[in-house]
Amino acid sequence: MINYAVQRFIQAIIAIVGVLTIVFVVMHLSGDPTLLLVPQDASAEMIAELRSQLGFDRPIYVQYLDYIYGLTHLDFGMSVVQRVPALDIVASRLPYTIQLAAGALLVAIGVGIPAGIIMATMRGSVIERILTAIVVTGQSVPTFLSGILLIFVFGVTLRWLPTSGAGELSAMIMPSIALGALSMSTFARMTRIAIIDELSKDYVRAGRARGLSLGQVVFRHVLRNASIPVITIAALEIGNLLAGAVIIETVFAWPGIGQLAIQSIQSRDFLVVQVIVLLISFVYVLTSVLADLVYVFVDPRIRLVR
């Protein structure tokens, strides 16, 4: 068990360093931010001086090693644009994204899993067909389009909900739905498949043979068994929601890290982008480690064998 945890930890570090390296290289290939920082009429000397001040004149591997060295001391660097620690900028935006992701996750799990259960257990019914239509829609409409459609219908036409900003709770409803829709479909489909798969197992028939109804067998045995693949999906979806927030936050002018990422990429604010990427990859890794721990809790075969 300990061995397993250590192994997972090392894998996680390698994954994060890998992602970071790729982002570092890509960001630096995209150009030098110095030019964006200086006034239009700046002389070549001024540019060169600022460049050397910011350290962008050094070879890329030196910049990289310097950055990594900083990270080991929990120094995430300064924003080249705002001249404040990049971590502080991201931290100030993070609560909004957490709020939005939580809302979206609530939509995804709260609607997706019950929908999946119904679709698996009531096959051929009218309600199953309606849910299938909803799930297919959620899955196939791109996030930016569903966001704009929601704004058009509920914000502009009906005027029920605010179209942008992060003030009151009602402002969260549309972005949460738009961001959660794709995840909701994924949860519904995976839950449905997992349950149908479990329903074909012998223990279901054996449960009915002891006098349980199909519903009782589903609630006592099938759901728990079917939860294992769904947990895997949940871990991936949390990371996907953060990534999806980049688009949704832009559409709804939501002041979270997604919007910040877009702004920082446009202004070539490397260090802020890198903090965001680090954060998202950290969340991916963390959720997959958490999922592994949950498996251990749910499935005695993993708990006792490892």
Binding site: D202, Y203, A206, H221, N225, D299, P300
Partner: peptide, 9 residues
């Protein structure tokens, strides 16, 4: 073995 729920004692 398949007739028993694998996750329950």
């Amino acid at each position: 073995s398949a007739s028993l729920d694998p996750l329950t004692t």
